[in-house]
Amino acid sequence: MTHDITVSSAHAPAKKRAGLLARFWQWEASGILVALIALMVVLSLATDNFLSTYNMSVVARQAAFVGLVALGQTLVLLVGGIDLSVGAAAGLSAIVGSLLLTMFGVHPYAVIPLTMGFGLCLGFINGFFVAGLRLNPFIVTLATWEIFAGLTMVITKGYPIRPLGETFGVFGKGEILSVPIPVLVFLVSGAVLIWLLTQTRFGRNIFAVGGNRDAAVLVGIRVKFVEFLVFGLAGMFAALAGILFASRMDAGQPSVGEGWLMGAITAAILGGTSLRGGQGSIVGTMLGAMLLTVLANGTVLLNVSGFWQRVIVGGVVLIAVLVDLFRRRG
């Protein structure tokens, strides 16, 4: 449970003895972890190559891209919002980043932070309307989704921007200790966000705002600032995913980010994040992103038609929601 994060570790050892299993089951991401492990066991038995180093790195990299977007989305969901524009923001940022590199000759190493900054600004646009003007996040981000996606087409006229060059390619293709760099970025980002949400005032304020906005105002939390910043971060993580993907593809493709929106929301929900705000966890989202990619990968390896993949994902989400329901009713 979220409220246990900061206080339970030092408290009530008696409770711990009440059973590790029960406590594990209480944890909102427990179901998804079990599901993920089960799925991986099945796939490793049913196929020859699921556990191969190559396949694992493919899966992990895919999970990293959609997972990065999902991290930002989780923050937005936690404050009780939703950001439909993340996929389009990732696409637009990737294009802008690619242009910085090719047209403006910006150093490849500077492109990543600049693109993230650009994504942050895209997110702040959402934040301005949602937090500043108190507009409905669904409507605002539906509009900015169209705007961002449209701008991408205006800029590119539908053609990819390529090549991006060897030096830049290292971010998407490179490995450190045989771990792909995007995967490392994903893991580090997740760790930073876990720290942010559990150990900082800003993080706890996110839970407070999402759990009860009125009360948060009254205890003196800068609610609008929290919401504004969270939308900015969602844009920033989307941009990070987008530019890493461009680096991986060696091209700024206008289609970057398509499909990431649903993936991001699905990953967060699978991980136990509530659409009503105030409840959820980064670990859950990371596992959710893993599960989604493993599922997709599994259907490919098992030669299931790609068309069935979406049916299966939908079914899994429903099952996850049901499991959560039964756990709550305990």
Partner: peptide, 20 residues
């Protein structure tokens, strides 16, 4: 509606404005 954070713990409800 305006006082408590229903999803959070007792300790967090008490310390929310004093987290700094």
């Amino acid at each position: 509606q305006e006082g408590i954070f229903p999803l959070l713990s007792i300790a967090e409800n008490m310390t929310m404005p004093s987290l700094d």
